[in-house]
Each structure stands twice: as C-alpha cells, then as structure tokens.
Design a protein around this nucleic acid. Sequence first.
DNA 1: ATGCGCCAAGTTTTT
DNA 2: CTTGGCGCAT
Length: 770
Amino acid sequence: MDAIFQGLTAPQRQAVEHIDGPLLILAGPGSGKTRVVTHRIANMIRHGIPAWQIAALTFTNKAAEEMRLRVQALAPGEPVWMGTFHRFCARLLRRYATMIGLRENYSIYDMADSKQAMKRAIEAAKVSTSHTSPEQIAAAISRAKNRLVTPEAMLGHSLRHNEQIASRVYPVYQRQLLTANAVDFDDLLLHVATLLRENSELRSELDARYRYILVDEYQDTNLAQYAIVRALSIDHANLSVTGDPDQSIYGWRGADINNILDFEKDYPTVKTVRLEENYRSTPNILRVADQLIRHNRKRKHKELFTSKDEGNPVTLKLYEDGYQEADDIADQIAHGIIDHQRRPRDFAIFCRMNALTRSLEHALRRRSVPYQIVNGTEFYQRKEIKDLLAYLHLINNPSHDVALQRVINTPARGVGATTIQRLRAFADDHNISLLEAARKSWLIDTIPKRSATKVASFVALYDSLCVKATATVEDLLLYLIESTKYREYLEKSAEDQQDNSPLANVDELVTAAVEFDRQHPEDGSLEEFLEQIALVSSTDDWEDNTDRVTLMTLHASKGLEFPSVFIIGVEDDLLPHARSKESEDQIEEERRLLFVGITRAEENLQLSYCKRRLVRGETRPVIPSPFLIELPREDLRHIEPDAVADYFDDDPYASDVYPDSWDLPDEPASVDQHNEVCQLDDEDRLTIKKPISVAKTLPPGIRTAAQFAANKITSPLTSFRPGQLVHHPKYGDGTIETMNGRGPKCMVTVVFDNGESKKFRLAFAELAAR
DNA sequence: ATGCGCCAAGTTTTT
DNA sequence: CTTGGCGCAT
C-alpha cells in the first residue's frame, strides 16, 4: 500500500478512509490522532477534493504548524487552510468587517488592552464597583460572549448581582470597541457567529467555500465556536471533529464538553471512530492515568491500552519544601544527562501555575542545565514592547484608543493625566476616537492652550510616522524608535538593568520584524504583523528542536510528549486549585488536567508534593492533593517512605483530620476547616477489620470507603456521592441514594441492583466506587 | 506634570 | 514576593 495507508491500524484506517459526511474521532492520548488527521487530508486530496475547500481548525498555531508540516510531506504544495479558530475568524472578519460596523484594519485587543477598555466602559456606564471588580465584570461579559449572548439579551436574563452590573457595562463596552475599530478575543468568534447567523447568503456561500471542515480538540470548543462550525456544515455536512472528553481543560474559558459528548445527537448520521491504543506511554504510566480519570463521573469510558513494555514504575515523591523539590528534580535531570546519556530535551516539568517555575529555574541554572520556559506571551507583555507595539497599532488603526492613551505621553512630552481625561470626555461626548479629539484639542475649552500645544506636537509626530506606514515593518519600527527617541527614554528611566534589559528586548522586537518581513516579502503588511502577534499563544514559542529542558503549565502541555515528565505541586489548593473547587464540574476538570499531564510522559513520570510551600511570601503547610489517593498505590513507587506513611498509612484508631467537604461535594470546600477532629465511638471501632486488606480482593487502584477513612488526608469529593455506582463484596452492585452526616459519621443508603436497599456507615462499609 | 514612594491587594489556567 | 494604584513632594 502507499504512504497514506501504510502502517495504520484498522480504526485509524477507517477514519482516514472517511471522506463525506460527519465524522467523530474519539482519540485517547497518544493514539496517533494527528497522524490520522493529516493522512485523512492527504486521502481527501487524492480523491479529487480541491485543497482550498478544506479548512482545518486547531487551538494553537503550534498544532497548525505541525499539521501543515505533515500534510506537506504527504501532499506537497496543496493549499489547505490550517490555523487556529481565532485566526480563521480574524481572517473572515477582515473581509466582512463592514457588515458588522468595523473597518478592515480593525485591531485585536489583547487582554491588557481590553482590561483598559473595560475600566473606561465601567466609568462611562456609571456603575458602582463596590461589590464587584473590573475583572469580575470582564469575566461575566466574556462568559456571555462565549455563549453568544447579546447585550440586550444579557440585560433581560441577568439574575445574579454581578451579572446585573456587567449587563449594564456590556453595551457601553461594545460601543466603545466599535468606535475604536477594535475587537477583543471573544469578539472574533462572536462577530463571525453573528455574521453567519444573520446572513443566510453569506452563510451558504462560506458553507460551500469551506466544504470540508476539520476541528481539532473539539472537546475545548465553546458555544460560539460550535455555532460557527455548525453554520458552515449545513449544506455540506462534511464536518469531522477529533477530541477526547477526558482532556477537556478549558471549561473556565467557556468550553462546553457537551459539544463533543452530544456530537452524535447533532449529526445522527455520524461515523464514530475510537482510537484507544496508546503509542506513547508505558503500561505503568497508562494505568495511573486510567485509574485517576475513572473517578470522573461525567465521561465516556475508554479502554486505554498499549503493547509497550512495562517500563519503570511511576514515582510519587514527597519533599520538605519547594526548594528541595526543585533541587532534587534538577539533580535528577543533571544526573540523567551526565550518567545516562539523556538529552535536556527529554525532560519536561509541569506545574499548575506559572509562578511555580521560579524555583526550578534557579535550580536548573545553578547546574547549568539549559531550559526553556514556555510562557509565550510574556515577551509581548513587557512595557517597552507594549509601548512600541502601541505605536504600531495606532499607525495601523488611528482609532485604537488604548494604544493612544499608552503612547501619547511615552516618552513624556507634557501630556498629563488630566489632559487625557479631558480628551476622553470630549471623545465620549462626540462619539469620536481619542486621536480625533486630540486633533481638535485647540477647540476643547477645558484644555489650556499650553497643554493643547503639547497634544498638537504629539499629533504632528504621529502624522510623520504615518508617512512610513507602508514601508517594511522593520523600517517603520526603526524609524519610530528614532523619531520618538525611545532608546534615550529607556536609558534614562531604567537604571536597574539586569540580565533582561529593556534595550535587548527592543532589539529582539526589531529582529522579529526583520523575520516577519523576510517571511512576507510581498504580502507583508503592518496589519498582519500585528495580528500575528495578537494571536500568539503560550505554546507557540515552544521550540521542539532545541535541546533544553521544558518548563510549562499543565495547560500548555496538552498535545506534547516527553520521555521524562515531572509534575510538581500535586497539592490541595494547587492541583485542584483553590479557585477551582466550587463545583463538581470544576474538580473533574482539575482531575482531567492532571490526566493530561500524566499522559504526556513516554517512559518516566514523577509526581511530587511538599510538606511546606512558600506561597505569597510565607511558608505554609501543605495538604497533599486528594487526587493522590485516587491513584493505584500498588503501581506507584513512593519515595521518602516515612514521610509518605504519615499521610497514607492506615491507623484507624488515631484521631483524624478530615476536610469539611467529605460529603458535601456541592458546597464550596472551605479552605480553613481542615482541622476538625473527629472522634470515633466504641461501636464503630469494633466494626473495623483491617480496612486495607479489602483492597487485595478488588481490582488494583479501586479504593474502598474504609480506605478513604483510614487515610488521614482525604477528600473523595467525587468518589462517593448520591448517584455514584458502587460495589459491595456481599451485596453486589448498587447505587448510592442518599448521604447524611459528614466525615466518619457519614451514613449512606445504597440501593442494590436486586432492589434491596441498605444503610451503611460510609467510613467502614466495604464499598468501592466503580 | 512628573516622579517617587508607600501601602494595599492579590495572585489559575489562555485564545 | 511581586504588581498596581494612589498620594504627596518637587
């Protein structure tokens, strides 16, 4: 057989062969999903489908690039459109901008920009922020946009106080964005979805244009994305989506896991292919991942399997503190490189928060181990870069109010806060942009003449920059640095120039411009340069062909793989993050996050946690992650056994510490109530019979309630709750009907499959989750 | 208008 | 330990 079908398994082949009609590929981690998708594209082209009718939508540029590379190898020179959802929308919006009241040179606000814009809108809407914050308002508006809720609709539907406030700001914010000829990230999707909904001719035109649509990471799509994809697949329902519900980790961003769970309902004629064989990880790693994810209730079970050799056991390690953790991991990596011919690139360290990479960074640097921190947007957040980009933005889009406010007085030229305030008031009154207001500063009676002169000199500077607007980005950038005396400004203001000097960053931006010009010799435009920067994602700067240890967040790790993986800070309030413990859904998402991290590992995996951790400047005691007790103990290699025993060994007679959330999964888990001491009464003690021994009669990794009770730390938030399917050695399978009480006193009523109903004390019943 | 310094707050994940 | 916001002195 030829290159397209060579070496494919039966299910993979089924997916590749599918051409017309809806297709759902449920692809477990490491199941060769990208391979299937790229081969399928090649196969479609070979069957005569014009490449330009195919659009493949991904979540990161990195993923799109990877896909492009592999399609190129199979079908050279074919113009298949591949890119992120946001880029796809940005591109459509350029063409149809006028239909929604924008011009085609509109700007994309990044998060900092929209935060500024939001503050201004809050001010203009005259709402009180006493019981809320700009962030919360922004979040509420973002949520609304992701769910395609218009300002009018939000006004009617808002129930909660927060949303009430937000719904008053929303229309103002949108109007101001429109005057600024700008959109935020959510708008890119929202506007395109609206466009498709309200324009049936355009919709059918685009449906026909993009006849074949492929969506990657479908489990992470939100309603807006769903609507877009759906609208483009009505006349030509050749929609194929790939994803894994167990890897859905963007719920907080509006992603709706039901999009993938209900795909078969939306497209009844769908062909579903399941890719369950794993080609990445050892059985040891896979078992740990599988046992963990089994604790999620909202999911479709998948049978993960591999034909790889057993490999090394997964390590669970306890450290005294974060420094010891960092030092030991750095030692292990250095050791692996020196003694075992490992390459730095073989190692990756994942964490829940970017802040946790600090200590690792130091530890690796002290040992001269090369590393890269994947935190893509960091560079573009630096003040000096934002300043220069703001100039470029303003040149490209004179209405970009956020940019104008940033640069009108940097470097300082005598335009102060009050003058800006007055310009803004004038602009708001006349519904014009700040730059237009600035041009009329002489006519604004609140602005004194001498201030108006300063403003005028800025406008003159601006106009002189605009003359160069059509030059290469490099020339424009150099010209603007020159005429604003930006270097001098930096040299004067920054004395503490350390290893990361602002001037070096400026040079790096120039380099980026040179690179852009080189890649776009003809079509390169300022607009495109700015768009590219606006839509970079955090994983985009991860270089796979550089020989460095990778440090990144668990979120950023999705889609990648490494021979050796360390996951640090597997601790309560960190891995289920303190802010993600409010609902069962959130806990399940956190569990998926750990699942994603675990399944990145090919050969070696270490999970670690500490006794103490430095957080917010002070050392705090740490509670291990409740997820740890969900892992199959017999498959893990514990290191630091004495210390681990403190947490895991069974001594049911000891006074115990339970989290308050033991049996209250639907209530917010309270952080400060872990100290409730529970005393067991005599009757209960008599019923205890070596709880741990029960485990031996059960499948590996399944914990009984008695074991949960025996463990000193525990929070089986999802394991035992009403509706949970359980198994009892004597009575068989059943379902938990009710739960009363908390901690060791919790009583459960179980209805067994034979119709019988029994009451148990959860802590000592030999019940297992199934 | 600028610039410094203090205090307070708040820290998830990201297109 | 960091950032951001505000107030005071120049």
